[in-house]
Every structure is written in C-alpha cells, then in structure tokens.
C-alpha cells in the first residue's frame, strides 16, 4: 500500500472507464447504448483530469477557515485541472444532448435504433 496513492487509484479507474467507454462505442449496436458509451468515455477522462491535479493531503482550492491564508501555495490542490473539468463536463453535456437528439431524429425517420440500419452512405 506504500505506493498506492489515492490519485493513482482514481487515475486507473478513469483509464479503465475510458477503455470501457470505447468498448461500448465500438461494440454496441444500439444507438442509445453508443451514446452511453460516449458518456462513460467522457466521465473517465474527467476522472483522469481531476486525478492529475490532486496533491497529497491537501484541501480543496477554496480559501476558507481551514486554509492558512499566508500559505495557500502549500495547502490546496491544483485548481487548474478542476477548472478545465468544469468546462469539459458542460461541453460533454452539450455533446450528449446533441447526440441524443440526433438519435431521436434518426429513429423518427426509420424507426430503428440499430446502427447497422444507417449504412446508406458508403464508398
């Protein structure tokens, strides 16, 4: 357990989640399942990002009573990845909503959720 840090555990979780997401994206035939695969992939990336900003035994980057105002640099974790993840999560939501709307539209046209039924364009 000596080398096993919190952020390494979460990082590994994130990486595996990314792989599971890609697996879902590549193997599931149902359009909604594919979108689910994407959200997993996305969440995995977010976990990786937050893990990378973590510093052992430090608190959240919010200056309140628990933080010594004169020694902020040595008491908080990195705020940058967190800020980036905030942005990424919102972007992910926008993309997911868009994908689902496409799925809905495709279903309305052809009454099928099988991705194999949308191969008209090719070559």
């Amino acid at each position: 357990m000596e080398n096993l840090n919190l952020e390494i555990i979460t990082l590994i979780t994130g990486v595996i989640l990314v792989l599971i997401g890609i697996w879902g994206l590549l193997t599931q035939k149902n359009l909604i399942k594919i979108v689910i695969g994407f959200t997993l992939f996305d969440t995995g990336i977010h976990i990786i990002m937050v893990s990378i900003g973590y510093v052992k035994n430090r608190t959240a980057p919010i200056i309140d009573q628990s933080v010594n105002i004169n020694d902020v640099g040595n008491s908080v974790v990195d705020p940058v990845p967190q800020a980036l993840v905030l942005t990424a999560i919102v972007i992910g939501l926008g993309v997911t909503a868009l994908m689902l709307t496409y799925v809905l539209k495709m279903y309305q046209k052809r009454k099928s959720l099988e991705i194999n039924n949308y191969n008209d364009l090719k070559w």
């Binding site: 994206l25 594919i34 994407f38 994908m99 496409y102 799925v103 495709m106 046209k109 008209d120 364009l121």
Partner: peptide
Amino acid sequence: TSAGFKYII
C-alpha cells in the same frame, strides 16, 4: 441526419 450522427461521434 445519420451523417451528422457519424460526424458528431
């Protein structure tokens, strides 16, 4: 629509 879906994923 399906091309758009392919594009976005």
